[in-house]
Design a protein around this nucleic acid. Sequence first.
RNA 1: GGUCCCGUGGUGAAGUUGGAGUUCACGCCGGCCUGUCAAGCCGGAGGUCGCGGGUUCGAGUCCCGUCGGGACCGCCA
Length: 575
Amino acid sequence: MRTHLCGDLRSSDIGKEVSVCGWVGRRREHGEHLAFVDLRDHSGLLQCVINNNVDVRSEFVVRITGVVRARPDGTVNNSLPTGEIEIGDCEVEILRRADPPPFSIDDRANDVDENVRLQYRYLDLRRSRMQRNLRVRAKVNSAVRTAMERQGFVEVETPMLVPSTPEGAREFLVPSRKSPGEFYALPQSPQLFKQLLMVGGTDRYYQIARCLRDEDLRADRQYEFMQLDMEMSFVTQDDVLNAVGEAVLSAAEAVLGERPPEIERITWHDAMNRFGVDKPDLRFGMELMDLTEVFVSTEFKAFAGAESIKGILVEGAASEFGRNQLDKLTERAKGIGAKGLVWLKVTEGGFESPVAKFLSEAEAQMVRDQMHASVGDLILVVADEWATTCEVLGTLRNDLGRPPVHEGPYRYVWVVEFPLFVGVDPTTGNPRPGHHPFTRPHPDDVDRIESDPLSVRSIAYDLVLNGWELGSGSIRIHEPELQRRVFAALGITEEEADNKFGFFLRPFDYGAPPHGGFAFGLDRLTAILAGEDNIREVIAYPKTQSGADPMTKSPLPVDATVLSDLGIRVLPQAD
RNA sequence: GGUCCCGUGGUGAAGUUGGAGUUCACGCCGGCCUGUCAAGCCGGAGGUCGCGGGUUCGAGUCCCGUCGGGACCGCCA
């Protein structure tokens, strides 16, 4: 039907007779014998000059045949890639009339209520922003797939109807028709199947996998999302990180045209110590500075004997923060678990602060030195257990300094050596797994699984970009003895382990190779590379925060006979 | 489960101390217009102020509830 795409035509095409198809964007009429129509397809806008009286309205679908010509002097539009030319002698064929759209199919729709955009997603998708985002997404998928193929990974599809497992995220359940009362689950991830692919000798597996989790939605979380899922046999952590890094950097290069530098690494402990979070945003400073030594023999009761005292420096912020805002910061700190928050405004004479009188001259001087503080800066200090101090200041640091996630520069970082166990279950007194119970302990720490479990590091790692967790992975345990020791530390008896994980672990007895893997979220990576701070903008048909789709109105009730076939009866809503 | 913000013609907004559905921009419909480009000019249509209750002589505005949307916490081994 067409010879060219609207956005592709240039001065070099002048003189050609062309046919273009698309939607009518803006139309500017100048009486009966002259009208300008901006024709739109996914490639861009093209001005068509119509000299006969044709009634075309917004979003009519048309085919226009005419001749490419240079625009007259003084009428070139430099803000349009096709702005030097136009189509003249137009013959217009209306392929489909259209009702006026509920919102403009251009950048003005960025301000439209997202619920309206989602209700008319097919119109929203016509816009250049959404077309661009869909294409960024396709580029990411393609680059990732190519990179994995290049490295010898084999794409294997794993099932969507899987057994329900009690661990991890809440699952979506699918009732079985043939076995009423029994259920499949939709996979939270292909974890089980990919590890058994290693037992099955696949060696290097990958999949662009759809994962489903029935947990509350956020800007970076949907019920269903895509992961680059991978697993490799006979490898070290470095092998996995290199393979994944190759895929991620290739995707970034495909979208941005430039390959990012090698991904740096930081240990979990350093990330917590310096940034107070396990997904540090390296784009800005405001690092946590240790002040514990400064106050070893302090008279100030709130600091005396604290396990960890740290501060962050908010440059030049002393005058911006009034008492009201400082009180809010204090409330925020308490909400995260701090006993309190000490603020110090740096002045010529010393500190302006409610606690200034409790600090010795020497302590004040050391704080200023340690924090590299200047007059006009604001210092926020927390004294508590190490984890609490880090977490509170890390949260305040993000609150006060973190730019929108999509803003450059892109800072990728591997966070390595996550602890094997995190915290203690308050009811059982057993440590809780940090990643999952099949995560391999760090070889240097294996001896302490029984004696000091909370100090044991694991070979587990996260990939972080601009403060967003892109994904995580680990080297797995493939030997039964080590697995037994970790289960024992978790308080899982052999019988329980067999009941809960036997279906997964028994196959290992037939010869599981050493293996490890990773999975990272393609929606999150795509959003950041596309310059969006919400993954809904890079998903064609996303759901709202309540899990609904305004376009299809799902979820919806189903007919009673359908439920009956499945052996399901719906109970009235409990109050 | 929790905290906070939002809801006014198709879209985006303004709406003062509680005083008539008032206003602005875009869009839509009609007219004029031969070089515009988010065209210009003239005219017109279009609203159960999310919904329900309450206070009041009187509610878009105040109060309570509820629904919908968003950000975040919990949750996401």
